[in-house]
Nucleic acid binder design. Structure first.
Lengths: 190, 190
DNA sequence: CTCGAAGTACTACTAATAGAAGTATTCGAC
DNA sequence: GTCGAATACTTCTATTAGTAGTACTTCGAG
């Protein structure tokens, strides 16, 4: 006989594993802290979940025994809750990392969709959208590089650094791709 | 005074525009047909929505007057509904393509996340996951190329072809990126 | 000629995600 | 010193996405 909780074991959404993964890299964090980590690191390769989602996942993770929490009152009025990964949590995460099927990459590329609909668009507008995308990608690339600089000397961070390097290449090719697209869209209108 | 419908104008989720976009490329389609299009073309750059979502969007689009439908009974028992884009629908779509802000690319890269959690993983398993990702990407690349071959001669398809070319380059660099990642992860274990 | 698998068409239910709102605190400019 | 903006922390609600199910059909293998 399998309990309801058992049925859900290892069937967390990727977001849940991401939250647990953040916790596996740190000591003890509040939901808010997890969000900051997610924004600054995970977001480069996996969209950062909303705060409300993170709180929800933390509650679920606690129910499963993968994390424990304690109230950390700052003063009479404010009250935060700090979460910490447990050994079963670490074990479940390890199992997921090693054995879960690689589920397909989710890509929602707004610019590509707009170009796909180019028969309805203005040539110049399309080029303009692409240029904005270039700017945005350059910004992301800059952030990745900053992050890389900050973490590359710490030996304990070897895997995160490997991923950051991957991210750097990813955003660099995104840039190249968009520039080639711009060429395909025709030379500059002015 | 602004009606409820007006408020929602131009505030469709991207999926809604994608459905309308498919319809803008065709004459008259059932929800099921839209799904097939989405799976075979849109999916390369924008995750294909579930059927249930498509049916929902079609109903909403009809409420907004962006599409019209007619029942097309095939026999006594079966009954399908065919949708067609209207002029206001085409206009709204044109407006969205030209003027909506480019919203940020959504990327959920499962492999990158697993590598990020590499401190918990088995070196060999990680390489194995990466190799599976390579295989998957090769498959996708093959599909893109097939699709490209099928559509490249038709002049009317110039924008879709531009996007397919972009997709080809995208999956090619995804492949290169994963191979470099594999190198970073260390040479083959055997 | 029939049985199973794949294809067509659609709906109902459930899970995941985004967004808005609420409350308190600190920091910096005027 | 106070006003507004940014930061810390959390919950609630509404939307969006995904799963599973029904039901009937066509096609191909044996």
């Amino acid at each position: 006989m399998v309990s309801r909780v058992d049925e859900r074991r290892d069937r967390l959404p990727a977001t849940g594993w991401a939250v647990l993964g953040v916790l596996s890299h740190a000591e003890e964090l509040s939901g808010y802290d997890v969000k900051k980590w997610a924004d600054h690191v995970v977001a480069f390769f996996y969209v950062s979940p909303a705060l409300s989602q993170i709180y929800g996942e933390l509650r679920r993770l606690e129910e499963l025994g993968y994390v424990v929490s304690r109230a950390a009152p700052q003063d009479e009025l404010r009250n935060k809750r700090l979460y910490r990964i447990t050994e079963p949590g670490r074990e479940a995460l390890r199992h997921w990392v090693n054995h879960a099927p690689v589920d397909p990459t989710v890509l929602k590329h707004n610019l590509a969709m707009r170009v796909w609909l180019g028969h309805l668009a203005d040539q110049d507008r399309l080029r303009d959208l692409a240029e904005r995308h270039v700017a945005e990608t350059e910004r992301a690339l800059g952030e990745v590089r900053t992050s890389l600089l900050r973490s590359q000397d710490r030996p304990a961070w070897s895997y995160p650094v490997t991923v950051l390097r991957w991210c750097e290449r990813y955003y660099r090719s995104e840039l190249a791709l968009t520039r080639e697209l711009l060429t395909d869209l025709g030379e500059a209108p002015n």
